[in-house]
């Protein structure tokens, strides 16, 4: 059985850098809401995570 990391934030996508501070995971800056959605979708598919919305313009991709 392989070991996996779960319940872990893999990436943060935002168009407002003032809402996010550096931490343990990469932060992707998007110009607008549309780009933010696109980046989130691509990241989620590539990483096998789920996109969550913090409702303040910040999306994050989490592995469950």
């Amino acid at each position: 059985m392989d070991t996996k990391i779960s319940e872990y934030i893999l990436a943060i996508v935002t168009n407002d850098m003032t809402k996010v501070q550096g931490g343990g995971c990469p932060v992707f800056y998007a110009e607008n809401a549309e780009e933010k959605e696109k980046i989130s979708l691509l990241l989620a598919r590539a990483l096998g995570g789920v996109v969550h919305d913090l409702e303040n313009g910040v999306y994050f991709i989490c592995k469950h």
């Binding site: 959605e37 989130s40 996109v51 969550h52 919305d53």
Partner: peptide, 20 residues
Amino acid sequence: EGSLLMVDDVVIMNVGLPET
């Protein structure tokens, strides 16, 4: 409710993408 998926009055999960 916002980004929270609900079934009646129970929160199921947070869904980020509008398409989803």
